[in-house]
Design a binder for these strands. Sequence first.
DNA 1: TACGTTCATGCAAACGTTTGCGAAGATCTG
DNA 2: CAGATCTTCGCAAACGTTTGCATGAACGTA
Lengths: 358, 358
Amino acid sequence: MKKSVTIKDVARETGVHVATVSRALSPNARALLSAEVVAKIRKTADAMGYRPNRVAAGLRTRRTMTVGIMIPDITNTLFPPIVRGMEGALEPAGYASILVNTDNDPDREARLFDVLLQRGVDGIIDAAVTHMDPHLVRISKDVPVVTANRMVEGSGIPSVINDDAGGIRMILQRLYDAGHRDICHIAGPDDLSTGIQRREAFETEAKGLGLKLPGTATIVAERYNEDEGSRCALSALENSPCVTALLCANDRLAIGAIDAVASLGLKCPEDISVTGFNDIPFLDLIPPGLTTVQILQFDVGRIAAEILLKRMTEPDARVPETTIMPVSIIDRNSIAPPKPGRGRKMRASGRSRKMKQG
Amino acid sequence: MKKSVTIKDVARETGVHVATVSRALSPNARALLSAEVVAKIRKTADAMGYRPNRVAAGLRTRRTMTVGIMIPDITNTLFPPIVRGMEGALEPAGYASILVNTDNDPDREARLFDVLLQRGVDGIIDAAVTHMDPHLVRISKDVPVVTANRMVEGSGIPSVINDDAGGIRMILQRLYDAGHRDICHIAGPDDLSTGIQRREAFETEAKGLGLKLPGTATIVAERYNEDEGSRCALSALENSPCVTALLCANDRLAIGAIDAVASLGLKCPEDISVTGFNDIPFLDLIPPGLTTVQILQFDVGRIAAEILLKRMTEPDARVPETTIMPVSIIDRNSIAPPKPGRGRKMRASGRSRKMKQG
DNA sequence: TACGTTCATGCAAACGTTTGCGAAGATCTG
DNA sequence: CAGATCTTCGCAAACGTTTGCATGAACGTA
């Protein structure tokens, strides 16, 4: 609204050329000037309340010191810590971030890429990417991109993800150790790398443990939310009355699953054990206390940002294509031994035997 | 990284002047041109993959189509819905948003204002403002500002806040109706408008109900978090062993308070009733189910954004200085009648009588 | 036919920086 | 002391748009 003071104004005020002012204010070029001039310029610049105009600088240098952050939905509690981790690395490096929510809508995603690129972001961190994302791979040719939490396979785009396989293996082991043999996996969406990788891990690890999985052992959720968790849990318990445990691809599915279990008059963990993934905020306060795979939410964001910083400042630097962050199990109260009366027994006397023969 | 196609390129390609291209691509100026030329230009622009450079346009027009959003901390679950509400209004209007977290740190806040203004934001929505914020009032002279959820009193800065007084009145009434007479208020920070207004409301409404409040009836938390809630609750229960209910200035304080109550071997609501404010996500899943004041989180953000839009597009338009959003009570299970053995009885036979005489 | 209007487009400046190049003075070298 | 080398700074172009003004053609009117 008000006319702001420019480099030209302080040049006039100090009786010096604008180029000199520019250099005096630039940390790099400052060395080219005499100390007195620099001091004088900085002093009067401060006094005049000069504030550098980064959009003008950005036009000239093609660097806006702004990055784009793309997430599915900030109201999904998984993402705020991730975003905060990114900011924690970006802000000290002088970058601001434009945050956009894709709602997992590809059209919206495409529009938002334009929103970011039109504003000349120096890089993009994408935590909303689908398993095969044509937009992103195209864009990654024009501007540095890093994906966080998810990845697009075989794209060469650097990604920071979690040890999905390890997490699934460990938590499956927990269930196994508790005595569970009839375990159903409520899988995440099959267009997301997390959904795919966790599912694959479940299936190979289950096989490794010698579990016999009927075709209905995996139920795929269409979205990572509570309603889908409920729907899939109901479906699982209906298809396979013998299941004693639901291994869910994330916490929200698990919360929905527990709700569905309760709606059938069953209890978690007494009747059905349930596990989650991510360890989202407040999960510890929700009964019965979900045993889950804890990911380093903050660090996923931070490392992704650090990799992007490296790619932006040294375009030729080599960065790891895939960074896998360690996970750990948080033991709470959603796993109990399988209830006598459920599980194997029904199976041994019932159709599973038949299926084996048939 | 790669050279992108500019208005000049499509001008050359179409054999027309850059100004014509600019006009053809601008929704306003398009009318000045002949339909055929417009069509031709748009076609080849599309074909060439032209993407307008908003930073160049922003330099020329002094409008970046970007706004700054300032919040204390995105990992505080209160804020994501508010931010999402803002985006819901901003994005369709063509604005992107730069999100920054102040951590309630004034120095950081000042730095972040610079971050935003250097990038030429067209306006700022501040949900992190303190009760008297010298930075913001100064800045509000240069760029349109709206505050959300909080306000800075007497500043003339448009704000969208909640009916704090009404919420406190209603929830206090709930406690009163349940029979509580010895109620302690765990107040929010005294440099935040919400903390102040809720506290004032509590004290005047309590007086209106004829409650006699000892000087220790209000305990002020230094921050809105669980630890402070615990600390204040312990302090309250220690200072006034007769209290039967804790009316907390927000949900996180209440969660901490319930935890403290449990740590004393007491139960909520049987021994102590507790109430919250905001109705943050997942609160419904946390036992015993906090009775709280529900605010329209999404709408607070949305309306704030709409007011900012109006101020940005029509600087002289009159906008309401304070918009108060309605609140409602969500009844759950954290209020029960006061337990016999607590409350009045101890007081009648003890020091409160003395204090009255002294 | 001459002249004022209207329409469609071109011209050029401006927005606030950054930066390669060059120039003048100071300092050094042999 | 002449020439070479630094040091310090100014000059001007460039980044990609937008927009007030000018211009020329087409058109209507007297």
